[in-house]
Design a protein around this nucleic acid. Structure first.
Length: 291
DNA sequence: CCGCGGGCCTGAGAGC
DNA sequence: TGCTCTCAGGCCCGCG
């Protein structure tokens, strides 16, 4: 489900109830997520205060007072929901209904402020992992991840350099988390559309002979930043079940130009949006204005 | 090293 | 209704 804008939206929803609060109890209903949770998972976080809730790529990063960091990934279908105050929730209110233990509620955090935070993930491609804060950057999950696309380190020169020797398509390169962090199928399609670049173009063609950025790299970086900013502002995209942690739906899906719009008219030329498959995943683009 | 395809899971929706 | 098939916002792994 979630790409950077959705994960960031989730982070912003969870931060007010988690930051500064203690985790007083943890229920693990199913520990067999993408990888099994460590056996002492609950014990290692019970009693910890959450000093901060951050994000790196598509991972939520909870900074714990124990010196550990809890990495949480939503996979394809993961979501969190909050019951603000377990004691005062009433039958019929949204959080109460959502708060009922469901088949796919795998991990429940009970916070010292009365809030309950539940991780739900039907497909169980999501994951949770505890690592020492000091070792986080060297963790196998983290160490190869590329720059944050909304940070200053991500610019045309950097992206061109990362793509300069790539034989693969531009689409595949942008999905590679080592090249740039946090993009997924939707926002790659959208960013390529807005930069008028074909997803089939070889990745190296955004660099000049010396590996420096050309005009395409500049357009692409601008498009990536713009689409991510706009999507975050919209609370992400709600295709099936992504919600903000308070239950609100994101609405960026209404702003898709090409994603999931096969056969529709291109918004800015007379072309028709086409769907192709690249490395096993759908790509949507306008063949007449993306070159 | 690189690039690709398979596999992990469940559920929604289309077509018959 | 119900069955079967395809597809889904991700990413690790093994192969050539």
């Amino acid at each position: 489900m979630p790409e950077l804008p959705e994960v960031e939206t989730v982070r912003r929803g969870l931060a007010p109830v988690m930051e500064g609060a203690k985790i007083i109890k943890v229920e693990v209903r199913r520990g067999d997520l993408r990888w099994p949770l460590v056996k002492d998972f609950a014990k290692r976080i019970t009693g910890a205060k959450v000093d901060g809730l951050g994000r790196r790529a598509k991972y939520l990063v909870a900074d714990l007072s124990t010196g550990d960091v809890l990495l949480m990934h939503l996979g394809m279908s993961g979501s969190f929901h909050i019951i603000q105050d377990t004691k005062t929730a009433r039958p019929g209110d949204f959080h109460h209904e959502r708060g009922k233990i469901g088949a796919h509620d795998h991990v429940v955090f009970h916070m010292s402020n009365g809030a309950t935070v539940t991780f739900n993930d039907p497909r169980r491609f999501g994951s949770m992992k505890l690592v020492k804060r000091s070792e986080m950057d060297q963790d196998p999950l983290m160490k190869a991840i590329g720059p944050e696309p909304l940070g200053n380190a991500f610019d045309a020169a950097m992206l061109a350099k990362a793509c300069a020797n790539k034989k693969t398509s531009l689409k595949a390169a942008l999905l590679d988390q080592r090249v740039v962090a946090g993009l997924g199928n939707i926002y790659v399609c959208e960013a390529l559309y807005h930069s008028h670049l074909s997803p089939k173009r070889q990745a190296s063609t955004i660099a000049d002979r010396k590996g420096g950025p050309n005009e395409r790299a500049v357009l692409l970086v601008d498009a990536i930043k713009a689409v991510l900013h706009d999507a975050i502002k919209a609370g992400g995209s709600s295709l099936r079940d992504h919600r903000q942690a308070d239950g609100t739906l994101g609405y960026f899906q209404h702003n898709f130009s090409v994603y999931d719009r096969e056969g529709e008219k291109c918004p800015n030329c007379k072309g028709t949006i086409k769907r192709i498959v690249q490395s096993g995943r759908s790509t949507f683009y306008c063949p007449s204005c993306q070159k």
